[in-house]
Design a protein around this nucleic acid. Structure first.
Lengths: 157, 157
DNA sequence: AAACTTGTTGACAATGGTTTTCGCTATGGT
DNA sequence: ACCATAGCGAAAACCATTGTCAACAAGTTT
């Protein structure tokens, strides 16, 4: 099954579907392993808008009794980002966060409280097109736009 | 001299002006030291659109014969960010960058090549107002907007 | 199904930017 | 000038992430 034939009128596979993952990996000479499955599962299980760090994922797997090394987590996350299945978020200065990158979903952006660190998500179609415009203007091909707004939330002020 | 009286028809002090710095610091019980002066000087000397990391600043000072500790650099940068004199940029995943935050200047944003890491700046008034809108909508008071676009630049593609 | 090739794993060490510690120094108020 | 204390700096600690490398297992070949 190729990427181009994935869509049907009845059901659209998410890019995180096991079948798709296998195809994607094998096409590139990668292997599909227990560990990669487990990591994808955790990411799938995460609620929409939930941003997981490498350590979060590692801890969740340890909690559910899986034995998995930290290096594997990081390696797999990088792989999935390279394959375009994951979006890497720079929400915090000291840790990276990851979320499934579903192309069907409009990219969303973040509003962060500088005081308590809480993160609100929002969407805005205008933002992506602004990014696209600017990329074109400077001869770049667009990969991702991240609009991050910092402020102080109601509770903290 | 208060912040409110800083402007004159003949000259507008930048917030980085020594006088202003002294006032700002003393008002808050901080002290103005040789080291803080030196660090501000380096930031002032940096060309517009030049983003300096803590290490860059440290190195520049060592190069010009100053003896200054790393901790002081970091401490001072944080202080200046807290005072609103500096903007902290998350351009790279592995290092933070700083630039003078001149309120007279429209905030500018960044287009980064994911391959070679080159950074282009651009301005867009619409972006700040989008950020302002969203902050209001969620009851936040706005501090900063960072719009970061990732792509592949002409040379790299 | 066994043998093989090579991508993958994981314990552990290493990296590198940033932060902390703490005894000494220097700033700014009195 | 004096003095309380904010600030300094060398060195150690931190901590997320990356590198190393022998053992392992996914997918292929025979």
């Amino acid at each position: 099954m190729s990427l181009a034939t994935m869509s049907s009128p009845h059901f659209v596979f998410g890019s995180h579907h096991p079948e798709v993952l296998k195809t994607l990996l094998n096409q590139e000479g990668f292997r599909i392993t227990q560990q990669r499955h487990k990591i994808l599962e955790v990411l799938n299980a995460a609620a929409e808008g939930d941003h997981l760090s490498a350590e979060d994922i590692h801890q969740k797997l340890l909690d559910q009794g899986e034995k998995i090394g930290v290096s594997t987590i990081y390696r797999t996350l990088h792989l999935l980002v390279d394959l375009g299945l994951l979006r890497e978020l720079a929400l915090s200065e000291e840790r990276k966060f990851y979320e499934l990158s579903n192309p069907m979903t409009v990219a969303h952006h973040h509003l962060i409280c500088s005081h308590c660190g809480s993160v609100q998500e929002f969407e805005d179609a205008a933002i992506v097109s602004l990014g696209q415009d600017e990329a074109l203007r400077q001869g770049f091909s667009l990969l991702d736009c991240q609009f991050t707004v910092y402020g102080i939330c109601e509770q903290c002020s």
